[in-house]
Design a protein around this nucleic acid. Structure first.
Length: 354
DNA sequence: TATGCGTGGTC
DNA sequence: TGACCAAGCAT
């Protein structure tokens, strides 16, 4: 499928100042009227905005919303975050994925407290120097918290600009050149009078109207400016593999409290280092049915997971650090998402994190 | 520049 | 069910 350009009188002269003003106010008016109420939209605290932007990296708004509130309650300021241990930060992050983000956020908070007296850098250029902050996040924080007129270009904005201008990506075309064009155009479109709102409006449009698959052009506030009316080529991705894996839920009683056996992933692990999970079930459980079956996708692998009730001798901790943990306090450890899900579904855990 | 890094919702 | 993918970053 290719991208066509509709000839359309309303598209107007793109260089014209009144054209730009009209486009800008159309989108901004829509955003101010229709935007979703989200917890990070009630603040201009640069720390809070920074936390939200890092959490939102490749992560859905719905998943972030609850976690964001809990995270800020536990770490209301950059000083609280800097004073925490990495394990505490990971615990609040457990289940969100991309744990490197949490480590880097924590690391950056410590740098800011140590070297900048706790003042979050105020420009995109300075923000970019911090770990975990790339071009997008630097621009988002600088524009939203400090009104710096710089375009924040995420996947949504890229798609919106691409459709708006009819710069569809055909297989063999020059991707970096297209990206540069998109970036320049996004910067040109940006409303310098309201950079934070503008950037959020572009993303909101991409997230709620200018959807990747089935864009809702009938609801689009800038459809009359759009070259393509939603036609768009989406690149193919690698297919996911499927794998089976079995974990063991090993429980013992100590007085009135139940304890569960957990193992810690080695620090050298590339995926989720240092986080806690259930031991692998190596047992010959052929007669027994799993107590729980669930599926869990990690990266390009779809896991079919079986959880077996087992005794301590039926499992493998093969040299890894392991602990018996009170069921109630397991939530205070940095668990992998799968371990968290398993313990929750088996009724071992209440999700009260510190 | 391509790849590794997690997860849960949706259809 | 399985495929797809969401406000990216670092290397």
């Amino acid at each position: 499928m290719t991208t066509k350009t509709h000839s359309n009188a309303e598209v107007g002269n793109k260089e014209d100042a009144s054209y730009l003003n009209s486009l800008r106010s159309s989108l901004l008016d829509w955003f101010r009227l229709k935007q979703r109420r989200l917890p990070w939209r009630d603040t201009r605290d640069p720390y809070a905005i920074w936390v939200s932007e890092v959490m939102l990296q490749q992560t859905r708004v719905a998943a972030v919303s609850e976690r964001y509130v809990a995270f800020l309650e536990r770490f209301p300021t950059v000083f609280n975050l800097a004073a925490a241990t990495e394990a505490e930060v990971l615990t609040l992050w457990s289940g969100l994925g991309y744990y490197r983000r949490a480590r880097q956020l924590h690391c950056a908070a410590r740098q800011i407290v140590e070297h900048k007296a706790g003042e979050i850098p105020t420009t995109a250029g300075e923000l970019l120097l911090l770990p975990g902050i790339g071009k997008y996040t630097a621009a988002a924080v600088a524009s939203i918290a400090y009104s710096e007129p710089i375009a924040a270009i995420d996947g949504n904005v890229e798609r919106v600009v691409q459709r708006l201008r009819g710069w569809g990506s055909e297989g063999a075309s020059d991707q970096p050149a297209i990206a540069r064009h998109i970036s320049a155009e996004a910067q040109r479109l940006l409303d310098p009078a309201a950079p934070g709102d503008w950037n959020q409006a572009m993303m909101e449009l991409g997230a709620t109207v200018c959807l990747p698959r089935a864009p809702r052009c009938a609801d689009c506030p800038i459809v009359s400016f759009c070259a393509t009316r939603g036609e768009h080529v989406t690149p193919k991705r690698a297919p996911m593999r499927s794998e089976s894996v079995a974990y063991a839920l090993v429980v013992r009683s100590r007085g009135k409290t139940k304890q569960v056996l957990l193992v810690q992933r080695p620090a050298e692990e590339t995926v989720m280092p240092g986080m806690w999970e259930l031991p692998l079930d190596t047992g010959d459980h052929s007669p027994a049915a799993p107590m729980l079956k669930l599926r869990h996708a990690i990266m390009q692998v779809n896991y079919k997971v079986e959880i077996y009730s087992a005794t301590a001798n039926g499992v493998s901790v093969d040299g890894k650090k392991h602990r018996w943990v009170d069921a109630r306090s397991a939530a205070k450890l940095p668990l992998t998402g799968l371990a968290r899900k398993t313990l929750l579904q088996s009724g071992m855990l209440n999700d009260d994190r510190p």
